[in-house]
């Protein structure tokens, strides 16, 4: 079934980041291109939380998130000179994250490692313990459900549903077409809902 034939409605593009932030990132990128490495350090400070959160969603509850964040910035430093400014820098950054995550997911699945090892718990934002516990539980379920998705579907799903990227931006970040994004998202949603249904049934029989 082609993507056009899917009954998937139009996807609502989410608002882009504020132009101020984007403009600041672009200025830093220009400085990095001129060999100003200290600008890279500043860019790292500005984006590291977002990168870590994105990677955590993309690869799931892994204990080696530190390494992935490092790997992302090492790649980013090498890649920035090739950034031509044809897309938003945020999209470019997500592309680097996606590449790192895809490589890691493939490597991880080859290892067929037992995922029952409990990685470090994630913290929930805010100070309400009850809400924090609920969020942690939700996060655990979501990541377990995401494990059921293929790597590519997972990237599209996470970018749309968790990172708030629009389909065009996802297409740029994944180096694929708009229709492919729609198709992957369609299937990912179905698989994710099925996985969640199963998991909630296990938790609340």
């Amino acid at each position: 079934m082609s993507a056009e034939a899917l009954p998937l409605p139009r996807l609502v593009p989410t608002p882009p980041p504020t132009t101020q932030v984007e403009a600041r990132l672009m200025r830093l990128v220009e400085r990095i291109k001129k060999d100003d490495v200290l600008a890279f350090e500043e860019l790292y400070r500005l984006t590291r939380d977002d990168v870590a959160r994105t990677l955590a969603h993309l690869v799931g509850r892994r204990s080696d998130l530190d390494d992935l964040v490092q790997e992302t910035y090492i790649r980013l430093l090498k890649a920035v000179p090739n950034f031509r400014g044809e897309s938003q820098f945020r999209t470019f950054l997500y592309r680097v994250c996606a590449n790192v995550a895809l490589m890691h997911l493939r490597w991880w699945r080859r290892r067929k490692e037992d995922l029952t090892d409990e990685p470090p718990e994630q913290e929930a934002a805010g100070h309400d313990p009850e809400r924090a516990a609920q969020a942690a539980q939700a996060s655990r379920l979501v990541h377990q459900a995401l494990e059921k998705l293929s790597a590519k579907k997972r990237v599209v799903f996470v970018y749309h549903e968790l990172c708030g990227l629009g389909p065009e931006e996802i297409a740029q970040a994944c180096g694929t077409s708009y229709n492919t994004v729609r198709s992957r998202l369609h299937h990912a949603r179905l698989e994710f809902t099925a996985a969640m249904r199963e998991l909630t049934r296990e938790v609340m029989p």
């Binding site: 590291r48 870590a52 979501v142 990541h143």
Partner: peptide, 18 residues
Amino acid sequence: IAREALEGARATIPQVTW
């Protein structure tokens, strides 16, 4: 339910040894 879980997951902060 799935969407609510996603909402909760969105709010979590990953633990990174910064």
